[in-house]
């Protein structure tokens, strides 16, 4: 029983990270109708920014995290401007290949700059005391991850539903041309979406760093793909879906590690990706996704 509860708490913590990343995927997909394959690598960039600012440049912890968030947002905007914007209206196959190219570009740039070895994640100065519930102890970093995610999600939901910019984002994702006719600056709205998605990725990299303690140039790709799985699972384009999917995949992964790995070996990835494939076959729109009718 203790194992189950511990596993569930770990799953929610990992799921929070996935949810943060999945939000970036789902927002970009909703608004630009493209799969931003490079999103996972933005996490890696965020983690390396934290490493550079705190470990190498000896910034205070909060400033390092802030720098990372700002840097990732700018990076998101730059990527969109250089690689995706010129391809608006091109076949989705070509956009996806470009996104894969960007993903590899980021990974290999990091490899050239920092080398292939692992780097320790610096201490950001964020210390949350552990919580002893009697039958199970919840670690501080887990509490921090979950609380940060919930706060960011509430903020994002409020932003999208209550502010003018959020309204513009919803309008653009609904119908780009109609939104343009209503006087919405579509380009700026798309840039903003990329900035917010990338900033969330930076926060995800902070949580990832706290939980996994080291980073590599390929750090972002696996969580990125898993988070995409989460976004698809919840229904791509749907923000509550991304959160739900993130927690679902995180819990599934931890449960599988706790209960299936001891019997069948390290096949967690098989289960996670198997779920993705089954989900896509049975319900391609995901749990909360809208069905889009194809027009001739």
């Amino acid at each position: 029983m203790t194992l189950l509860i511990e596993t569930l708490i770990q799953g929610i913590s990992l799921g929070s990270i996935y949810a943060l990343i999945a939000l970036g995927y789902t927002m970009v997909y909703g608004i630009a109708k493209m799969l931003n394959f490079a999103h996972g690598d933005v996490i890696m960039v965020g983690a390396y920014t934290i490493y550079t600012t705190i470990s190498l440049a000896h910034f205070p912890g909060w400033l390092g995290v802030l720098t990372s968030v700002v840097f990732c947002s700018v990076l998101g905007i730059v990527i969109e401007f250089l690689a995706y914007k010129p391809l608006r209206g091109a076949p989705s196959l070509n956009v996806l290949i470009t996104a894969i190219g960007i993903s590899y570009l980021l990974q290999n740039l990091a490899l050239l700059i920092f080398g292939g070895q692992q780097e320790d994640v610096p201490n950001t100065g964020i210390n949350v005391p552990s919580l002893d519930l009697g039958f199970v102890v919840v670690e501080g970093k887990v509490i921090f991850t979950i609380v940060l995610t919930v706060v960011l999600m509430i903020a994002l939901t409020l932003f999208i539903n209550k502010t003018k910019m959020g309204k513009a984002m919803r309008a653009v994702s609904e119908d780009k041309d109609a939104a343009r006719l209503m006087g919405i600056n579509v380009n700026r709205t798309i840039s903003l979406t990329f900035a917010i998605g990338s900033a969330l990725a930076a926060f995800a990299s902070l949580c990832y760093g706290m939980n996994y303690t080291y980073i590599k140039p390929t750090t972002g790709s696996m969580p990125g793909i898993k988070a995409f799985t989460a976004a698809v699972f919840g229904g791509i384009g749907s923000i509550p879906g991304a959160m739900l999917g993130g927690f679902g995949i995180g819990i599934l992964e931890k449960l599988s590690q706790a209960y299936i790995t001891p019997i069948f070996g390290e096949i967690t990835d098989v289960i996670v990706f198997g779920v993705l494939i089954i989900m896509l076959v049975v319900r391609p729109t995901g749990l909360l996704g809208k069905k889009i009718r194809e027009k001739v």
Binding site: L93, I225, F228, V270
Partner: peptide
Amino acid sequence: IPALRVKGDYLAIVTLAFGEIVRTLVQN
């Protein structure tokens, strides 16, 4: 067969997932 239900970006991810599944299974 899943390719009949999903297409475009989704299908690309299915094939990616397949590659990872094969690699993980073979490793075990």
